[in-house]
């Protein structure tokens, strides 16, 4: 079995602020890795470095055992060596954002079929058929012709998940997918994510939903100040945390 994702010694700083201080992580196919930690611990930045929405300062990322090749620009800052490779790899790594980020000038269906048609050059009819299937899967097919602005947050996030699935990714990246949602809308999004996990999809999930992590994660990673403080199977991490910081974090996040 090939490794779905491998990160080695990744670092990232913004100005003088070191956000990621050297993280290595491996995900096998079918793994659901939940990244937890208090805000400012670098969770989202780590996720965004994987698909190069942020350019890491140093370190390597392999997707399906293919190394994303980096180089330095004229100013000496790191940048991708081959943008075509980055664009191609990004379709293997579709991302779901905290704020949904649906394109507001397109209908729900157009959002889902945009990349399959224009990036992957699938025929329009094929893309539409697949688009409806995916919208059905996330339970929102009857809203296909509407614009995102007329949908609730939970519905928008489910469309965003369908849009991510539409490029047929090998790995799904979730960046706090329920943090912008009203509490009563969180459930519908988590249900969709759970069903994806059950299908055996590889998922990297940055989340504050400890219940979800406990139930679904094959591995939980606890970040603290840009480093992995503790990691292991969900049961281990939640039931017998070793580090003092993780104990404190869990104590303040598990109630309720």
């Amino acid at each position: 079995m090939i490794t779905a994702l491998k990160i080695k010694n990744l670092t990232k700083s913004f100005g003088s602020l070191d956000v990621i201080k050297g993280i290595s992580l491996t995900a096998n196919q079918g793994d659901v890795i939940c990244i937890i930690g208090s805000s400012g611990s670098g969770k989202s930045t780590l996720l965004r470095c994987i698909n190069l929405l942020e350019t890491p300062d140093s370190g390597d990322v392999w997707v399906n055992e293919e190394l994303i090749s980096m180089t330095k620009n004229k100013a000496g800052d790191p940048c991708p060596a081959d943008y075509k490779q980055v664009d191609r790899i990004r379709t293997k790594l579709a991302m779901v954002f905290q704020d949904f980020n649906l394109w507001t000038h397109m209908t729900v269906l157009q959002n889902v079929i945009e990349s399959p048609i224009h990036v992957q050059k699938i025929s329009k009819q094929n893309a539409i058929d697949r688009g409806y299937d995916l919208l059905k899967k996330v339970g929102i097919n009857e809203k296909a012709e509407q614009y995102p602005s007329s949908l609730s947050g939970g519905q928008q996030q489910r469309v965003a998940i369908a849009r991510a699935l539409a490029v047929n990714p090998d790995i799904l990246l979730f960046d706090e997918p329920t943090s912008s949602l009203d509490p009563e809308l969180v459930g519908e999004v988590l249900r969709v994510m759970k069903s994806l996990a059950k299908e055996g999809r590889t998922m990297i999930v940055v989340t504050h939903e400890m219940g979800f992590a406990k139930e679904v994660a094959s591995k939980v990673v606890f970040l603290h100040e840009g480093l992995i403080e503790e990691q292991g199977e969900a049961k281990e991490v939640f039931n017998s945390p070793k580090s003092e910081r993780l104990k404190q974090f869990l104590a303040s996040n598990l109630e309720g």
């Binding site: 698909n51 929405l53 943008y83 075509k84 664009d87 191609r88 990004r90 379709t91 790594l93 579709a94 991302m95 954002f97 704020d99 980020n101 649906l102 394109w103 507001t104 000038h105 945009e114 990349s115 224009h118 990036v119 992957q120 965003a160 849009r163 991510a164 539409a166 490029v167 990246l173």
Partner: peptide
């Protein structure tokens, strides 16, 4: 919104597509 540009990148759109399909209409 920056997020819409990031979303476009995250599904593999190159600079031209981001510009032409997402930026210009908005």
């Amino acid at each position: 919104p920056r997020g819409q540009i990031e979303a476009a990148k995250s599904v593999g759109m190159n600079k031209f597509l981001v510009f032409y399909r997402v930026l210009i209409p908005q």
